[in-house]
């Protein structure tokens, strides 16, 4: 019964990390909904079908676009934030079907998202420096 616990004990149980995960989840959800459909339409549908002007995204243009500060932000919004969104859903989904322990799932899911994010952003930075 929490009502009998002194304030410092409650403070002790504060979930200081959850606002961060939830913030990334929310931001990722917005990016998922707003940006990803357009990105998929252009890069995964129109481009392979040859419906874009021939040199709209040729190698020079694409690498110039990607390996830049806007490109860095683009990767953050289209890959990293949606990764954290998915990680949050997976973590809660696993809890819902009682798989694993939440403490471990949390580390695996958010850790995975963080690792992939660092990898993606690292590639962009490497491209910018080269």
């Amino acid at each position: 019964m929490n009502k009998h616990k002194p304030q410092h004990e409650l403070q002790h149980k504060q979930a200081f990390d959850e606002p961060l995960w939830w913030g990334l989840f929310s931001a990722g959800g917005v990016c998922f909904a707003v940006l990803l459909p357009a990105v998929i339409l252009f890069i995964a549908v129109l481009l392979p079908l040859g419906l874009l002007p021939a040199n709209a995204l040729n190698y020079e243009r694409a690498s110039a676009l990607l390996f830049s500060v806007p490109g860095f932000l683009f990767v953050g919004a289209v890959i990293c934030l949606p990764l954290f969104h998915a990680a949050h859903r997976l973590r809660h989904g696993l809890f819902d079907i009682s798989v694993g322990s939440d403490a471990l799932n949390k580390k695996l899911m958010y850790g995975g998202a963080a690792l992939l994010s660092v990898f993606a952003l690292g590639l962009v930075i490497a491209g910018m420096l080269s």
Binding site: Q11, K13, A15, F16, E18, P19, W22
Partner: peptide
């Protein structure tokens, strides 16, 4: 005082 209760895993953060 209430935020200390709400900001726990068993507070708002258990809601999906």
């Amino acid at each position: 005082q209430r935020m200390a209760e709400l900001n726990r895993h068993e507070g708002v953060w258990s809601c999906t």
